[in-house]
Amino acid sequence: VKKMAKAIMADPNKADEVYKKWADKGYTLTQMSNFLKSKTAGKYDRVYNGYVIHLD
């Protein structure tokens, strides 16, 4: 998940494709939050927020 999150950060155009894969795998927002937690607070906030919007 972190590898794909980094791919989104490097190229935001990949976001919809990645979010669809995550949704197809049934990842919940709680799971995504836990996967994307980082020592650098807020590092993956943009990715998480994008997934929230995708699921909505």
Rank of each mutant, 00 (worst) to 15 (best):
8 I>C: 07
53 I>G: 10
13 N>W: 12
48 Y>A: 02
36 L>F: 05
44 Y>C: 07
10 A>F: 10
26 G>V: 01
31 Q>N: 05
40 T>N: 09
37 K>Y: 09
15 A>Y: 03
21 K>F: 15
24 D>Y: 07
22 W>E: 00
40 T>F: 10
3 K>C: 14
25 K>W: 15
22 W>Y: 02
43 K>M: 10
51 Y>D: 01
15 A>N: 03
24 D>C: 12
22 W>R: 00
43 K>P: 05
44 Y>L: 04
56 D>F: 13
6 K>C: 12
38 S>H: 08
52 V>G: 07
32 M>F: 04
56 D>I: 15
30 T>A: 13
45 D>R: 06
2 K>Y: 00
48 Y>T: 03
13 N>H: 11
6 K>Q: 14
16 D>H: 14
5 A>L: 07
32 M>Y: 00
22 W>A: 00
6 K>W: 09
12 P>M: 07
30 T>Q: 13
55 L>N: 03
26 G>M: 04
14 K>C: 12
14 K>H: 07
49 N>V: 10
22 W>M: 00
6 K>S: 09
31 Q>R: 04
56 D>G: 15
17 E>R: 08
8 I>V: 12
7 A>H: 07
6 K>R: 14
6 K>N: 13
41 A>N: 11
22 W>S: 00
42 G>D: 07
37 K>I: 09
27 Y>I: 09
7 A>G: 05
32 M>C: 07
11 D>P: 02
55 L>T: 04
28 T>L: 04
34 N>Q: 13
40 T>S: 10
26 G>T: 01
47 V>T: 01
34 N>R: 13
10 A>N: 11
25 K>F: 14
29 L>P: 11
26 G>A: 05
47 V>H: 01
8 I>Y: 00
22 W>T: 01
45 D>C: 09
8 I>D: 02
1 V>Q: 02
54 H>T: 04
4 M>I: 05
40 T>K: 12
8 I>S: 02
43 K>Q: 11
8 I>Q: 00
5 A>W: 02
23 A>G: 05
54 H>Q: 04
17 E>W: 11
36 L>W: 02
21 K>W: 12
24 D>K: 10
11 D>F: 07
37 K>C: 13
39 K>S: 13
38 S>K: 04
52 V>R: 14
12 P>L: 07
56 D>E: 15
50 G>M: 08
51 Y>M: 02
38 S>M: 05
33 S>G: 12
4 M>R: 04
32 M>A: 02
15 A>C: 07
35 F>C: 08
26 G>E: 06
23 A>S: 12
52 V>E: 10
13 N>S: 15
36 L>C: 04
9 M>S: 03
28 T>F: 02
23 A>P: 00
9 M>V: 07
9 M>Q: 06
56 D>A: 15
10 A>G: 08
22 W>I: 01
55 L>H: 04
18 V>C: 07
20 K>R: 12
55 L>D: 02
7 A>S: 11
49 N>C: 15
39 K>Y: 08
54 H>F: 15
53 I>D: 13
15 A>K: 06
49 N>W: 15
48 Y>D: 02
19 Y>I: 02
45 D>M: 06
42 G>R: 04
23 A>N: 06
43 K>N: 06
27 Y>C: 05
32 M>H: 00
31 Q>L: 06
48 Y>L: 15
5 A>I: 06
41 A>W: 09
43 K>D: 06
1 V>S: 03
34 N>H: 14
24 D>N: 10
6 K>P: 02
12 P>I: 08
18 V>T: 09
47 V>C: 04
42 G>E: 06
34 N>G: 12
27 Y>H: 02
34 N>D: 14
23 A>D: 06
31 Q>E: 11
8 I>M: 07
27 Y>G: 01
46 R>H: 14
27 Y>F: 10
31 Q>P: 00
16 D>N: 12
5 A>N: 03
9 M>I: 12
25 K>Y: 12
3 K>F: 09
35 F>V: 06
33 S>I: 11
3 K>E: 13
42 G>W: 04
42 G>Q: 04
56 D>T: 15
39 K>Q: 11
7 A>I: 13
6 K>G: 08
12 P>C: 09
14 K>N: 09
5 A>P: 00
38 S>D: 13
38 S>E: 06
4 M>L: 11
50 G>T: 01
2 K>M: 07
52 V>L: 10
49 N>F: 13
18 V>D: 02
51 Y>W: 03
10 A>K: 14
15 A>S: 11
36 L>R: 00
5 A>E: 02
12 P>V: 07
37 K>S: 12
47 V>Y: 07
49 N>A: 14
14 K>M: 14
21 K>A: 15
34 N>K: 13
5 A>K: 01
34 N>C: 13
27 Y>L: 09
26 G>R: 05
50 G>D: 07
11 D>M: 05
39 K>T: 14
40 T>A: 10
43 K>A: 07
55 L>V: 04
49 N>P: 03
52 V>N: 03
47 V>G: 00
34 N>Y: 13
6 K>V: 07
30 T>K: 12
10 A>I: 11
34 N>V: 13
56 D>V: 14
28 T>M: 00
20 K>G: 08
36 L>I: 02
25 K>N: 12
42 G>S: 05
3 K>A: 13
40 T>Y: 10
27 Y>R: 00
50 G>I: 05
42 G>F: 06
2 K>P: 03
31 Q>S: 07
9 M>N: 06
37 K>G: 08
54 H>S: 05
1 V>W: 04
37 K>N: 10
16 D>S: 13
20 K>H: 10
10 A>Y: 09
19 Y>E: 01
15 A>D: 04
16 D>P: 14
14 K>Q: 10
55 L>P: 00
24 D>W: 06
51 Y>H: 02
19 Y>H: 03
49 N>G: 08
39 K>E: 14
42 G>I: 04
35 F>L: 13
52 V>Y: 06
43 K>W: 08
36 L>S: 00
1 V>K: 03
7 A>C: 11
44 Y>M: 01
36 L>P: 03
1 V>Y: 02
8 I>E: 01
17 E>I: 10
28 T>P: 01
36 L>Y: 00
19 Y>G: 01
48 Y>R: 00
45 D>P: 00
47 V>K: 00
51 Y>G: 01
15 A>R: 07
26 G>L: 05
11 D>K: 06
20 K>Q: 12
4 M>V: 04
6 K>A: 12
17 E>Y: 11
25 K>E: 14
15 A>T: 06
4 M>C: 11
32 M>V: 13
21 K>M: 15
19 Y>R: 00
38 S>W: 06
29 L>H: 06
27 Y>M: 04
33 S>L: 14
22 W>V: 00
12 P>K: 06
30 T>L: 12
12 P>S: 08
2 K>T: 05
5 A>R: 01
33 S>C: 14
38 S>I: 05
28 T>R: 00
18 V>L: 06
1 V>F: 08
25 K>G: 07
6 K>M: 13
5 A>H: 01
31 Q>I: 09
18 V>G: 03
50 G>W: 07
7 A>K: 11
44 Y>R: 02
20 K>V: 07
29 L>S: 08
9 M>W: 05
47 V>R: 00
10 A>D: 13
43 K>Y: 12
53 I>T: 13
47 V>I: 12
23 A>I: 06
35 F>E: 06
35 F>T: 02
28 T>D: 08
40 T>P: 15
31 Q>A: 08
45 D>H: 05
41 A>M: 11
42 G>P: 04
18 V>K: 02
13 N>L: 12
54 H>I: 05
28 T>N: 06
30 T>N: 12
21 K>L: 15
11 D>R: 05
52 V>K: 14
40 T>I: 11
29 L>N: 04
52 V>M: 13
43 K>G: 05
29 L>T: 09
44 Y>Q: 02
40 T>L: 09
2 K>G: 02
45 D>S: 06
22 W>Q: 00
35 F>Y: 09
4 M>W: 09
10 A>V: 09
48 Y>K: 03
13 N>T: 15
19 Y>W: 03
34 N>F: 12
55 L>K: 00
42 G>H: 09
9 M>L: 15
13 N>C: 14
46 R>D: 15
